[in-house]
Structures are given as structure tokens and as C-alpha cells.
Simulated scan of single mutants.
Amino acid sequence: MGKAEQQEQVERIVHRFADVAPRNWVRLVGNWEAYTDQSGELTLNYLTLAVVDGGDRWLFGQVGYDEPLYDLVAQLQPMAAADDPDHAWTVLDLEVDQDGTFRVEFGYDPPKRARGVLDEESMGRFETYLDRWVGEHGPRPPARPSGGRP
């Protein structure tokens, strides 16, 4: 499986993530940890979050579970290992901005959250995400035209 097919799969993930995002979202944050369970089946432990323009303040919370999004991510994991079994990612970080830009990062260390390790990397950075967002973007979203969406 080539890099082009993997890139196309990432783009499908980005589009599906945006499709299930709440109204007025400005950034989507996804983190998936992949591991094989005792039966040999791939399982994903995931966090899917959104920063939303709440008008007078930023809002932040969990994006609801979406089976097609889960399946797209699950399909990406073995694609990376098709040419090199040692290159299967164990952690996928994805940020998607409303303008369509996105950042993806793959990790190869044993997943932490799935093993009960709740440190800064596996959990803390998501718990403080809104605080960091506000620090970078200010406490209020920019004014928008009446009825407009970001």
C-alpha cells in the first residue's frame, strides 16, 4: 500500500471528521490509540474533540462517536504496515481547522491511555486544550456577521 493511498485515506478521515463536527466548529482534535486485543482484533481508544465558536466564548467538548469515522481510522492503521509490519502506527494525532488545513502525526510507542497511563501525553494535553486555545486566540471568538458561520 503506497503513501498516496494512505494520504487519500487521511483525507477521507478529515472529511468525515468535519461532517460529524458540531455547528460553528473552528478546530477538531482527534487522538486514536491502536492496539491489538487478545483475539487479535484491532481496537482503537480515541478522543475526538472540537473547539467551537460559542459567540461570546470558546466552547470545547467531545465529538459524538461516529462508526464510519472509527472505521476509516481503523482501516488506515494496517495500510501503514502493509509494506513494513514494523511501521504500523500506534498513536494517531489529527488536528483539522475550519479552513480545511490539517496536521497529522503518527506515533510508534506503545499506546498509553489504552493501558491506563493517564499522563500529559495521553490525557492531560486534551484536558488543558481549551486553556491553551484561549491563551493563543483570546477569550472570545472574533465578531462574525449575524447568522454567519466561521
Rank of each mutant, 00 (worst) to 15 (best):
D53H: 09
V63P: 05
V10C: 01
G148H: 15
K3P: 00
D109V: 00
L94Q: 02
E8F: 02
F17P: 05
R115F: 13
L59D: 14
Q9A: 09
P22S: 02
T101V: 07
E105R: 15
P110L: 07
D19L: 01
T101G: 13
H87E: 10
L92Q: 07
Q75K: 12
E95L: 09
Q7C: 00
L69Y: 05
P145S: 13
D131Y: 04
G124R: 08
L59C: 06
D97F: 15
Q9T: 04
R103S: 14
A18Y: 00
P22Q: 04
P22G: 02
P145L: 15
E120Y: 13
D119R: 11
Y46W: 10
L94R: 03
V91A: 01
A50H: 08
D99Y: 12
Y65E: 12
F60D: 04
D86W: 08
G135D: 13
T43M: 12
A21L: 10
F102D: 10
E120D: 12
A34Q: 04
V117A: 13
D53G: 01
E121W: 09
T90S: 09
I13P: 06
S122Q: 10
F102N: 13
G148W: 15
A34K: 01
E127F: 07
L94V: 05
A74R: 15
S146H: 14
T43H: 08
V96N: 11
P110S: 06
T90K: 07
F17D: 03
L59A: 14
I13E: 06
R132Y: 05
A80Q: 12
Y129T: 01
V96W: 13
R125P: 03
R27A: 11
P141W: 01
